[in-house]
């Protein structure tokens, strides 16, 4: 674009924003609010995802062995498990280790175990983790078939519920994001429509003297993009502040919670929000221009 033309475009955009400053402020704030909610949801979904995969990765299979196995048999089972596909770690827990753990877990109530005397009722076992959480079930079933294996256990119900919940959150989040993006689009295109309407005389004259469609469109497009950008920046700043505050609160009370660290996460989210603001602004303007600038 020629230099004097881009100067003209920028000037026209600023004049228009200033001339309709209440309208502009109203649309920028609506855009900011929508993008803020959009961002909150993005953050929630991403954190939920992370928590889900964190929990999923915690799921392990306990393989309880039959009594009276020789050391070679036990080692052989361990090797067989390692030989399966998708196995991450295999750790042997001897029956005395298991008893120690149980004592620790029972804490003050460990005396209950004393009632058993010298008898240790716990079996030898392997603790197996898999690389991909979705493979837990298959692996557990395969291992249960091994001779010398009494039974395998994993949190079947927990794992399945977790998958259901994360899927729900993803779908719900996506739907809500689309709805909000649609609403923002509508708001911006409406504002631009008002601007076009307010400047219809200018537009008519431009057409009569032979301005090209793009020349007529540019200032309006820019206006939409500038509004989207401003709304996006406001939303991004607000999101950053809210996340920092929320993260501080959560670390205070739930230290183990696997929250996504603020950097670079929030910078990326902020950039995404600003870019979506601008994209929505451009799209919103072009929608209303298409309908109201019929040349």
């Amino acid at each position: 674009m020629k230099m004097r033309t881009s100067e003209y475009m920028v000037r026209e955009t600023l004049i228009s924003l200033k001339r309709h400053n209440w309208m502009s402020i109203a649309s920028i704030s609506t855009v900011a609010v929508s993008l803020f909610v959009l961002g909150i949801f993005m953050i929630l979904v991403l954190n939920m995802n992370r928590m889900a995969s964190f929990l999923e990765s915690q799921v392990q299979i306990s393989v309880y062995l039959k009594d009276d196995l020789s050391k070679e048999d036990i080692r052989g089972i361990g090797d067989d498990i390692r030989g399966l596909q998708g196995i991450d770690t295999v750790a042997f827990i001897s029956r005395s280790d298991a008893e120690k753990r149980l004592r620790e877990r029972l804490g003050e109530q460990a005396y209950l175990l004393d009632a058993l005397g010298e008898e240790n009722p716990l079996p030898d076992s392997y603790e197996v983790t898999v690389r991909d959480p979705s493979m837990v079930e298959t692996a557990a079933k395969a291992i249960a078939e091994f001779s010398g294996v009494e039974q395998t256990k994993y949190g079947q119900d927990v794992v399945e519920h977790l998958f259901d919940i994360t899927r729900l959150i993803r779908i719900f989040g996506l739907v809500l994001m689309l709805l909000l993006a649609g609403a923002t689009l509508f708001i911006i295109s409406n504002t631009i429509r008002l601007t076009v309407f307010a400047r219809r005389k200018e537009v008519a004259i431009m057409k009569y003297v032979g301005a090209t469609d793009w020349f007529i469109r540019w200032p309006f497009m820019l206006e939409g993009v500038v509004m989207g950008f401003a709304g996006g920046v406001i939303a991004a700043i607000a999101l950053k502040l809210v996340y920092a505050a929320a993260a501080a609160k959560i670390y205070d009370t739930l230290a183990f919670f696997p929250l996504i660290p603020e950097q670079p996460f929030m910078t990326i989210i902020g950039m995404l929000i600003v870019i979506s603001g601008m994209a929505i602004g451009a799209l919103g303007s072009s929608i209303s221009l298409k309908r109201f600038l019929k040349v």
Binding site: K201, E202, V209, G210
Partner: peptide, 30 residues
Amino acid sequence: RRGLGVIFQDYRLLPEKTVFENVAFAMQVI
């Protein structure tokens, strides 16, 4: 339309632009 000049009964000038700017506008936009 650049090869045609048009005049209407109701003048159709831009009220917030000066005489000079109104005329220059036709050149600016092309």
